[in-house]
């Protein structure tokens, strides 16, 4: 009997607490920067595509909903010829972001992706690519990679010695 009254009392007291329910969509939800929502492809500081088509996101994806094809421009820079995410399968686990060696693929705090037609949940590269560096500004993969792909010459990257002169025997 006492416990019953106590529970009723506690419930009654909740009327004076701050409300958790918000008037969505008039009122927007506050999401944190690391909230795992909509997947985007970002660009590096030079506004080049960050994605190098390494296929690691696709391999990491537990529902296999990412498919892409890598290709190369005339400088040897890799980029995806197409990049497709089937959001009707995506579980927003964020493994793709973890696997990405170039910070290209990122999950952003946005969940408003609902569609009436399931086919519209298939996103191509044009739908995914944004004009921003996303959460990790300043990183340019090709500046730290050994490969020369039109961004820097051999030996001009961060932490690189100039190319070896094969003809020299000097130590």
């Amino acid at each position: 009997m006492i416990s019953l009254l106590r529970s009723m009392g506690l419930t009654f007291l909740h009327m004076f607490r701050k409300r958790e329910t918000i008037q969505y969509p008039e009122e927007k939800v506050t999401l944190h920067p690391r909230w795992r929502g909509r997947i985007v492809l970002t660009r590096d500081p030079d506004m080049g595509e960050r994605c190098v088509g390494c296929y690691l996101c696709a391999a990491a994806c537990p529902v296999d909903c990412i498919s892409l094809q890598a290709t190369e421009d005339e400088n040897g820079r890799r980029y995806p010829e197409f990049f497709r995410i089937n959001f009707s399968r995506c579980i927003f686990c964020g493994y793709c972001e973890e696997a990405c060696p170039t910070y290209a693929i990122q999950l952003i705090p946005d969940f408003e992706m609902a569609e009436y037609n399931r086919q519209n949940l298939v996103y191509e590269k044009e739908d995914l690519l944004i004009n921003s560096e996303g959460k990790y500004p300043g990183y340019n993969y090709y500046k730290v990679a050994g490969l020369s792909a039109g961004i820097k010459g051999k030996g001009e990257g961060d932490n690189e010695e100039p190319p070896v002169d094969v003809h020299s025997l000097l130590p």
């Binding site: 696709a58 391999a59 994806c61 296999d64 909903c65 497709r84 089937n86 399968r89 298939v122």
Partner: peptide, 16 residues
């Protein structure tokens, strides 16, 4: 066993 893209590679044609 690590084959990827099973549910996306043909999704542009039909999502099923």
């Amino acid at each position: 066993h690590r084959y990827s893209g099973r549910t996306a590679m043909l999704a542009n044609i039909a999502v099923s």
